[in-house]
Design a protein around this nucleic acid. Structure first.
Lengths: 222, 222
DNA sequence: AACTTTATTTAGCCTTACCTAAATCAATTT
DNA sequence: AAATTGATTTAGGTAAGGCTAAATAAAGTT
């Protein structure tokens, strides 16, 4: 007897999850920007979510918002849907890496538990989606991230790209052109401590990447 | 620059299409029953749909409602989505014949044109869904039905099941148990003009079917 | 033709989730 | 400590799409 949440509520929870993932409560304004809604609307919605029983968010006026246990589970459910869907759309309908997001964004709210299970099964219970993001488990826990930002790689170290985080479609297309997609093997050939630029070798190519990019790419050293 | 319709509107149009398929305008009450909504709500919604520009339905107080050209196209779009989705879910996720309906019912409203095309492509542009229902074409026309009701089959005639129309999940499960699913070959071995019962042979089995069943099964003679 | 039953419509309300404008709080400067 | 600025909240509205109850229209009976 799980409570049914509106699409809008699911979206709020998902975005709150993402904004609070690295500690720190989410502010009304950033949430409003993410949701493409006015700050006043966010305040209203948050107040409702905080007064549900059980409460989905923890909220003190002017102090930002965090998820409760219930809220977190609901958020992880949506995120699991999203990431499974992206994986599935890429694998079975030939969507490209950067096209799937929008489609999954709409589907994630309407698929059944049964559908979720069938897709997970069909995909062999994948750990990561096509961007390399971790997929929450069936019992709604987020696996630990065992990859590290590319920005921590230093001269002569090698690694394999695992994930590209928080990237918009433009950046994804850019990275795809550079061949910087999950499973690609790379080697750091230079690092500048001044501007934090990292020079890497990707296959035959040499690329120089700034911090804003190297921070978004996760790798596993090898 | 197609107009975006709400899920609710899409549902109204779809059900109006189905109720008016064999001539005759749809009445407020039957529509309300189908949509699981009160008659008063139907009146309200229909009035809105009739006043859209362009109008989606034709409506005269107390005379029932029919679709306009625009309304019909919108309805066929939803029905195309539904039937493609059912076909796809059965083929790629192993849904059974009688389980797909609900899932497709929710997905049909949120998939993109791109998704529709990819699925149609992946399936090889099928003509019928798993129930045998005709799938509207990409340019939103309903193909002509070239199959006939099983109730017209007479002693010693043979045919192949093409479709099971308007059946609820219970009937579908029942027919599945009897082996009466699309592509099954059958032969009429007796017909009673009094009660319209038809005795047929399905593989090794002999079955006696009443009119309420034989009218819902479409076949092609051979 | 009058009455009864059933179908349909009108009127008035509710909820959800958004909006704008105005008010208040918090943080930073001066 | 006061003032300014920016973030947040309150107050009051709007549009969808439901609902109930009451009013009206149509259809069927006597």
């Amino acid at each position: 007897m799980k409570k049914l949440l509106t699409i809008s509520t699911q979206d709020y929870l998902k975005h709150i999850y993402e904004l609070t993932e690295h500690n720190a409560p989410a502010s009304t304004n950033t949430l409003a920007a993410r949701l493409k809604v006015r700050p006043a609307s966010v305040t209203g919605m948050i107040q409702k979510l905080a007064n549900e029983k059980p409460a989905l968010v923890e909220y003190q006026k002017h102090q930002g918002v965090t998820l409760t246990k219930e809220g977190r589970r609901a958020a992880l459910e949506v995120i699991r849907h999203h990431r499974l869907l992206e994986t599935w759309l890429v694998q079975t309908l030939g969507y490209s890496w950067d096209e799937v997001h929008e489609e999954a964004e709409r589907l994630e709210h309407v698929i059944s538990e049964d559908f979720e299970q069938r897709v997970a099964e069909a995909l062999g219970h994948p750990l990561r989606d096509p961007h390399g993001e971790l997929i929450p488990t069936a019992n709604l826990e987020m696996p630990l991230e065992d990859a590290t930002p590319l920005s921590t790689l230093r001269k002569n170290q090698r690694g394999t790209i695992v994930s590209v985080r928080d990237a918009d479609a433009d950046l994804l297309r850019y990275l795809e052109r550079l061949g910087l997609i999950p499973n690609t093997h790379i080697e750091a050939i230079d690092y500048s401590p001044f501007d934090h630029n990292l020079t890497i070798k990707v296959g035959e190519q040499t690329r120089v990447l700034g911090l804003s990019v190297t921070n978004k790419i996760l790798i596993k050293e090898d």
